[in-house]
């Protein structure tokens, strides 16, 4: 069925523009078609077929249908937006973590830099010998503490256990440490190793010395 055909017929019928036969045909159809009959009655009451009104109704229907489509789209975009938002959140957290991680090591390096500057340059194994202070102690390595430390470092690589030993000794006429003794308890094997190192090591100036060796 063609709706504009019907509505135009109704309109022309009501305006008396139909021929006798056409009128009869429509009336006959309406008798068998209650919807058509009621529609004709309605338009007769309204005294007119208002096409603008009908097209507004069509507009409303189209909007209603569009509404569903939009609802669907809105839902769709909603998920999409949620996805974008979630991704943005994850990215932001990632960036924050990265920034934080970058900041942390920088702090550590700066701490380290301070530490590194403090000690006297030492041997590769981190061995360090300093003169222990005390009355009548005047011995020092002839080549200087730096050279002595380097020497110790080379010799003591990988020594364990780590620890500290304080050795006091006399320096003989040739500048070689003699009568080397440990202050406090120290492992005998380590003591003899250290004694040997001192004897074989650089010459000393002075008469009496005491060194604290950290390794």
């Amino acid at each position: 069925m063609n709706n504009s055909y019907y509505i135009i017929r109704i309109q022309r019928y009501l305006n008396g523009e139909l021929s006798r036969d056409e009128m009869y045909e429509l009336e006959r159809e309406a008798l068998d078609d209650p919807l058509l009959q009621d529609a004709i009655d309605g338009y007769r009451l309204q005294r007119d077929v208002n096409h603008r009104q009908l097209s507004l109704l069509q507009r409303r229907l189209a909007d209603r249908i569009e509404g569903q489509a939009k609802e669907r789209n809105a839902f769709f975009f909603g998920w999409q937006r949620l996805g974008v938002a979630a991704t943005a959140c994850v990215l932001m957290v990632l960036v924050l973590v990265l920034l934080w991680m970058r900041n942390q090591p920088m702090q550590r390096t700066s701490e380290k830099e301070v530490q590194v500057e403090l000690p006297v340059p030492e041997g590769s194994a981190g061995v360090r010998a300093v003169a222990a202070s005390g009355a009548g102690l005047d011995a020092y390595p002839e080549g200087g503490w730096e050279a002595f430390n380097t020497y110790l470092g080379d010799k003591l690589i990988g020594t364990s256990p780590k620890g500290e030993a304080i050795l006091s000794f006399d320096v003989d006429a040739r500048g070689v440490p003699a009568n080397i003794q440990a202050d406090g308890h120290i492992d005998a094997a380590l003591l003899s190793e250290l004694q040997q190192l001192l004897v074989d090591g650089p010459k000393w100036a002075g008469t009496k010395g005491k060194v604290a060796i950290t390794f």
């Binding site: 019907y6 009621d38 189209a62 249908i65």
Partner: peptide
Amino acid sequence: LRVLGRLYEPYMPLVYGLCYKYYKDEAKSE
């Protein structure tokens, strides 16, 4: 709804007329 719209749209003018018959009011019929 687009399918339903295609089904209903041809009948809208008739349905409107029918509604007007009962309501005798344009806005209500719409």
